[in-house]
Design a binder for these strands. Sequence first.
DNA 1: GAGGCATTTGAGTGATCGATCAAATTATCT
DNA 2: AGATAATTTGATCGATCACTCAAATGCCTC
Lengths: 235, 235
Amino acid sequence: MPKDPPASPETALEGASAAEPAPASGTKDRILETAMRLFHEQGYNATGISTILREAKVNAGSLYHFYGSKEALLVGVLQRYVEMLRPIVLEPQEQATDDPIERVFALLAWYRMGLEITGCTMGCPIGNLAIEVGDSHPNIRELIDLNFRNWSRGVRQWLDDAGDRLPPDTDREALSHFILTVMEGAVMQARASGDLVPYDASVAQLRSYFDLLETAAPGGARSRAKVSARTEPLQ
Amino acid sequence: MPKDPPASPETALEGASAAEPAPASGTKDRILETAMRLFHEQGYNATGISTILREAKVNAGSLYHFYGSKEALLVGVLQRYVEMLRPIVLEPQEQATDDPIERVFALLAWYRMGLEITGCTMGCPIGNLAIEVGDSHPNIRELIDLNFRNWSRGVRQWLDDAGDRLPPDTDREALSHFILTVMEGAVMQARASGDLVPYDASVAQLRSYFDLLETAAPGGARSRAKVSARTEPLQ
DNA sequence: GAGGCATTTGAGTGATCGATCAAATTATCT
DNA sequence: AGATAATTTGATCGATCACTCAAATGCCTC
């Protein structure tokens, strides 16, 4: 059973503020968090500096004192996401369950919660930026890639932890990329359709894939309780 | 063996122009095709009307004679994509192979070609718009969704054609959404990483899933030639 | 409390945004 | 040819864009 209900994706961001020893102003953090929220809600290009200034209650000079340009602000946002990945995204799932494979699906359920709360309007902030500004400047693309690679590496650790529940020749590196692929693609489709049906369908297919993999693993076909009839070995 | 090499995703667009009885000007088409290309290359928000005007060699008044606003132009682009889906995207794969499941992977190989040609800088134009402008206005979201639903429906037809090569209780509707999910997510990751590795990894995992499904199908484990060791029933 | 540095103020920069419109031109039809 | 409609021209609109900067204010140390 779950140990601890993880915070929703949309409320989890605030929790990362008080981590550092409160370095003076707070203005810089307010700018960063406002930019993070607006970039997520509206996208990077659609978010004007003036909107950030208004919502963060900051003057233009202050923003440009801390961040030399809008792009530098984006870099700051992406660096923050790198910092937040483990404590906000991965660790809550590790708290939620000890089962390494269930952690994968707990993570997918966490993103589902983000979709549900926003009525399928806001997707993965990194994925959004990957598509909108992914190839504008090299260091930005690399920061987005870093977020993705860390995400996949975290999932990959879980897959490694699953041991012989997966077939020994399973390409766990590829499988971890695949899981990120499924999450991002499913979120995109949920936003386009305006409901969670395609998201749930994709997660269900991924679950079916894992069931088949576990059935094929040396651990045996009986390791999991509810394996659908179609995953039985030949009758 | 393949019957006919399908045109690449990046050159296929031009072929759809001469379909109609050449209705006068050509200006409208030139505007639409230029907008289609620029939205794909740069995104919707990052593309200025002035750029479209310059590259299409058209004056502002002409554009606004045909399209009342930038958003109306986007609607025109999305409608064009709806028209192009079957002749440009789906039918070439049906020409390429008769095997319904191989058509799925031929389609994925087609998108891979688009990534390869552009050096992993341009993704799926619909997916890009889904994320960037997906929830700006309802009719736009619906047009994007229409593109996705038609895409999935086409794939779903192939899955139906596969008959008993898939387990009878397979949720083919969900599986067709899943395939779109994998394509879009894999394209996103390829753009972020700047190479095709995560794309190929995701497609390989999807292939592995299909192998497992086919093995579990009543048609039997021996229907396909090269099934990896891990897909064997219990040893 | 004086000096020095970080931060904040907020008016203002030129550039570009999407969009407008009257006039000129071209095409279509009688 | 003449009338009517469709299309094209291109200057121009106000709004907003990302951004600058000199001056004012706060904060810390000595």
